[in-house]
Design a protein around this nucleic acid. Sequence first.
RNA 1: GCGCCCGUAGCUCAGUGGAUAGAGCGUUAGGUUGCGGACCUAAAGGUCGUGGGUUCGAGUCCCGCCGGGCGCGCCA
Length: 563
Amino acid sequence: MIPTLRTQVRDAIERAWQAAVNGGALPALPNDAPRPAIDVERPAEPEHGDLSTNLAMKLARPNRRAPLEIATVIAAKLIRDKSQPGSASPIESAEVAAPGFINLRLTDAALERMIAGILAEPASWGRVPAARPRRVNVEFVSANPTGPLTIGNARGAFVGDLLCRVLEAGGQDVTREYYFNDSGAQVSHLGASVVAIKAGRPVPEEGYKGAYVEDLAREVPADVWEAATRDGVETEGAADAVGRWAAARVRQGIEASLEHLGVHFDVWTSEARLHEEGWVDRAIERLRAGGHVYEQDGALWFRSTDFGDDKDRVIHRSDGRPTYFAADIGYVTEKFSRGFDHLIYIWGSDHHGTVARMRNAAEAMGYPKEHVQVLLYSWVRFVRDGAEISMSKRAGEFISLDELLAEVGVDAARWFFASRGHTSAIDFDIELAKKQSNENPVYYVQYAHARIASIVRKAAEAGIVPAADLAGALAGPAEAALARVVARLPEVVEDAVVAEETQGITAFATALATAFHAFYRDARVIDPDAPDRSAARLALARATQITLANTLALLGISAPESM
RNA sequence: GCGCCCGUAGCUCAGUGGAUAGAGCGUUAGGUUGCGGACCUAAAGGUCGUGGGUUCGAGUCCCGCCGGGCGCGCCA
């Protein structure tokens, strides 16, 4: 696998800097000075070259030299490096600019190697290997199975899945996990609601009232109903028994909705099972052995304040029942027992008050705190024609995720969430999303892909094959401009992995589509009068198509051959 | 009151301490005898909530204020 151009350039700068120091042109760093990271970035202005570095400005203070002077020395070494026989330096030119930037241009050869690499190994293009691959558990959605997923659950589903895809592209071994409570009071209330409808009574005050509850009542299997009744009268545990069935039924629906989104969970974990298998009790014993719990007012407390929390937290209520937090503690140990190196929780920002206790409990049990990570996403205001949509699952007033997708479409919805940072509170106007569907950037990107697919088909009919040797293929301005964008994908992925965000990926996809449309305008691919040039341009078009397809795949968005 | 998040173009949102702050939509003015016009070119549009500070350099980091969201349960 070829290192990214950014990495190649960074290495070249490193070599030039070392050469300057070894040759006495620049002083070595003082022993107490930290070694500055070599930043290589894409200048906004094309006149500033393909890449630039601010290393000279960073060295100015420790070296006690003017930035321009340092930049001049390093730039000279970069050019000398390039002119060495057999040099693989990707740098064509290095110019110094005030107040101390070094502006770099890439060689055609470096770009040709990148494009050739894409065509040789399309599947791995855009994947960046991890220095040390970790086994990562990502738990998200985790809505209790008391009703269908709503649009309120949408952001968690998309944010979680997008993060998983980014981590996978970054070489991590990812497990998608869904945690649900199928035994608590809420499930019992759901069961009571179903029982009430079946018995012709009104749904209880604390019950669930949506149309889906009536559907459930109609579908209760005979054996479940018979087990819950005696001589036609409901038994004591009828609500629980029917509730368990209903929860399982609802869970199937949730799974189907998520699959429809393109989100596939590897593991579904039941809270009840954690209790039954003793994970919760064993974890509490572990905390007790470490002196991290105490009893007060008849309840069992975790000394969260010992780890920086603002108050201690209840594990067992004074009536002996465990809190949700108790199960969370057991769940942490259960997850680590399966061999994960790192746990990520995707929670709505309304849960931020519970982050500290979770991580503190993990630390108290001996797990490194930094390997229990919580990613909070901000709330989405769903709006229709400017008015906020208020929802209540209990009252049966909500818009389901399935309805949203039927209106807006999976690709457009994925793009919407991928293009926004998860910490920003956002508005989702459903009418606007539908109205703008034809103007949505996602279709702009998909259109570019379909357009290339059409060209590739036509080229095949004309008997044109992509050029095998790309030497000189990127000399023209149209080719050079497009190739420079195409080659960036692995850098974009690297940045997304570090930031754990996807906005950069959607921005790149848009930029790539724009670059291709400009190429399409300026450079005709299929030209029987110029077979060599056609083959070269076709190779670049294919590389662009692969890049678009892999970028969209990274977001879980389809790349249509025609539209 | 305390804690966390947010405030950037008319709207929805990007912007690892770098050079003249960007994109999509919307608005305005143009463009195709040719590979897909779901396209392209250009223009207008900004006191980056606000006041200080840090430094060669701040939308970005620190502090104060203003405005908004969320949290501060033996709820989940």
